[in-house]
């Protein structure tokens, strides 16, 4: 299992400080939710772990090796990434799109092997997009496309999966399905890091939650500890109803802070 360690990470986007000193150790086998209001630095943290933005200070280590010292292909085999949004520039078939997940594993000028094909088929089955396999990905609905893009990330079969808002544009049934899928991935040893906005789903499914606020970690720990009235009031600026259902926390925002 892989451990990602973040040490004193500070990042500015232009002149705007996006992360102001993040320290965390993230272990394989866990589903870790990153939550926080818009602009808190969630996506920047996800991109920084992948080495897509250069830190001003601090560093990110994958199993004690600094990411800046690792070749891009090695990071690509270690961390699968589902970026925010549904960027798709060419009208590829779903299967061809999912197959892009195998790029980090292909030797130069070699074709898809049977192992690659098995990974593609597995990812398609896990995300329930078998019926869409031969459809054009750009012609799918938002929710279908979200699942296909998740399949693309799963096809990498990396020990770490970072999903930036994997629930966007999904209906409640598919939201639950994706969260169950992410939890199952974590249970099989993968380190799953998911940027989420739905606090109840984060609370129900995540093993640990990092609550970001203005580029800093406001709280880090067990969902029921992190999602308390005080944190919701100071970080999100909302008054919320906090309850329990099926033994897991339920969070319903009721009004903005007076």
């Amino acid at each position: 299992m892989v451990t990602i360690t973040i040490e004193g990470l500070r990042i500015s986007l232009g002149k705007h400080p996006a992360l102001r000193g993040i320290d965390a150790s993230l272990d394989g086998g866990m589903l870790i939710g990153i939550i926080g209001p818009n602009g808190a630095g969630k996506s920047t943290l996800a991109r920084a772990i992948l080495g897509l933005v250069k830190p001003e200070q601090g560093r990110v280590l994958i199993d004690a090796v600094e990411t800046s010292a690792l070749p891009r292909a090695k990071i690509a085999r270690t961390i699968a990434y589902l970026p925010q949004g549904q960027t798709l520039h060419w009208p590829l078939d779903v299967e061809r799109l999912v197959a892009l997940g195998r790029l980090p594993h292909l030797a130069p000028f070699s074709d898809i092997s049977s192992a690659d094909q098995a990974a593609i088929d597995k990812a398609i089955a896990l995300t329930d997009v078998e019926a869409l396999r031969h459809r054009t990905a750009t012609e799918l609905s938002g929710g279908e496309r979200a699942r296909v893009l998740l399949a693309r990330a799963l096809a990498v079969e990396a020990p770490v999966l970072i999903a930036d808002e994997p629930l966007a544009s999904l209906d409640p049934g598919h939201q639950l399905e994706v969260m169950e899928l992410l939890r199952a991935q974590a249970a099989s040893g993968t380190l799953v890091i998911a940027v989420l906005h739905d606090l109840t789903l984060a609370a129900r499914f995540c093993d640990r939650i990092l609550l970001l606020n203005k580029g800093e970690i406001a709280a880090d720990g067990d969902p029921s500890d992190v999602l308390n009235a005080g944190n919701l009031a100071t970080v999100y600026g909302v008054r919320a109803w906090l309850g329990q259902a099926d033994g897991a926390p339920v969070v319903i925002p009721l009004s903005r802070n007076p």
């Binding site: 970026p83 798709l88 520039h89 892009l100």
Partner: peptide, 20 residues
């Protein structure tokens, strides 16, 4: 060829697939 394919997913997506 392959790097261009990866760019279908945008620049972040391509880099995360190992494209320099």
């Amino acid at each position: 060829g392959r790097a261009l394919d990866a760019l279908t997913l945008g620049e972040d997506g391509a880099q995360a697939l190992g494209v320099d």
